[in-house]
């Protein structure tokens, strides 16, 4: 398993399970939750380095979840992954410091590459702010 943790947030359970399973099969330490609220709870209990976040969800939407994640856990990198892309949500998300704004479908290789990059950035930000990712080695 990877030395970093990924949390996938998507309200479509089929999609979520498939993505988490495929990430795990590729040795990415991934977990999944189905709402923004659950994501925030998860981050309180268990750390994650990178969050892959759906934008359009019932209840707390992805942009709001991003805002709160960045507020409570500024060191966590968030990749927005949406099937209902719009210019507004892209600009809003990126202005809120999302690492990237990706539009479904995305190839798994590409998604993993972005996740690794986001984790790499998270490490450097950790050096800068004095909050390195938990050492799992």
């Amino acid at each position: 398993m990877s030395s970093f943790k990924v949390l996938v947030v998507d309200d479509e359970r089929d999609f979520l399970e498939s993505l988490v399973r495929r990430l795990q099969r590729r040795s990415v330490d991934a977990a999944g939750v189905t709402s923004g609220e659950a994501a925030l709870e998860h981050l309180e209990r268990e750390k994650a380095d990178v969050v892959v976040l759906d934008v359009k969800m019932p209840g707390m939407n992805g942009i709001e979840a991003l805002r709160q994640i960045k507020q409570c856990h500024p060191e966590v990198e968030v990749i927005l992954l949406t099937g209902h892309a719009s210019v507004e949500s892209g600009v809003e998300g990126l202005a809120l410091e999302a690492f990237d704004y990706l539009i479904k479908p995305v190839k798994l290789d590409e998604l993993i590459e972005r996740i690794m990059e986001a984790f790499d950035r998270r490490k450097v930000v950790g050096e800068l702010t004095g909050s390195p990712p938990p050492d799992q080695s």
């Binding site: 479509e12 089929d14 999609f15 498939s18 993505l19 359009k56 099937g83 209902h84 479904k104 479908p105 995305v106 190839k107 798994l108």
Partner: peptide, 13 residues
């Protein structure tokens, strides 16, 4: 429509 976008991702490979 949304399901299709998800599906294309699940079907990859």
């Amino acid at each position: 429509g949304g399901q299709l976008r998800q599906a294309v991702m699940i079907l990859e490979g």
